[in-house]
Design a protein around this nucleic acid. Sequence first.
DNA 1: CGTGGCCCCTGTGGGC
DNA 2: TGCCCACAGGGGCCAC
Length: 285
Amino acid sequence: MRRALASRVVGRRVVSARLYRRDVLVMPGDPAGGFARNPGSAPARRRVPPSALLVEGVLTTPARRGKQLALCAADGRTVLVHLGMTGSVLVLEKGSRGPQDHVHASWRLDDGSRVLFRDPRRFGGLWALASAADLDRRWASLGPDGLEVSGDQLFQALRRTRRGLKAALLDQHVVAGVGNIYADEALHRAGLHPRRRGESLSVAEAHRLAEEARRVLAEAVEARGSTLRDYRLPGGEAGGFAARHRVYGRGGQPCLACGGPLLHAVVAQRTTVWCPKCQPEGAAE
DNA sequence: CGTGGCCCCTGTGGGC
DNA sequence: TGCCCACAGGGGCCAC
């Protein structure tokens, strides 16, 4: 999504912006890290100055860490986007009509195109940041990006936790960018049970898990993501990786590696699918 | 402190 | 056809 967005917005000037729901935006000074509508967050009724939404800024290449996408102006102002489960960022050519429902923010660019943030369930959101330093501070609390996580990094993060691997992989402080789909896919490829305790992993197993996480994410990026329903590229196209999921969404069906039936159960509060033969419960080594 | 449970929200598909 | 329930790519907050 970052790449597709870059090809459409880099160098464009933001002419104007609109915010249709104030509570999808977290402003500087709002509780750090919180979502605008969470209990405990400030009501966030303050007026949003146009500068917070990059108006008059010239857009540079978007940045990304894990699941967070940063729309950046050349002067350092940034709007951070999190898609949650159903969010999308769409770019509409001049004069073309986009979706009308669940659009919470939009930007008009100097070539007449429009950028929309749409999110039916509103589990996603936007964060206005004043500088690149603010972005760095925010991203410092995330784990290494899943595309680049090393075996040693993963081993160090897992060696002191009694949590299961599934829970640990979903924790964005451990690895950034791995969610429910890619956690299951990486564990299956690595031959590790989702409930194996992190502390029980050998160095070799941690390296294998990191490698498989990197590989499945790289393949997914190549296929432009997993569209189940809502996820779209900025041009509205679906990503093609869902057809290549080996376990996610395939509970009860045959394992593509051994032919045995895949199990599914709730692990770490999320539906989890694994192969009992390829991913044995006990330590394999 | 690390962890698990609950909650936020809308839409959809299945069973009756 | 309509109703009700279960479930869905995430993650913050709050008890233990």
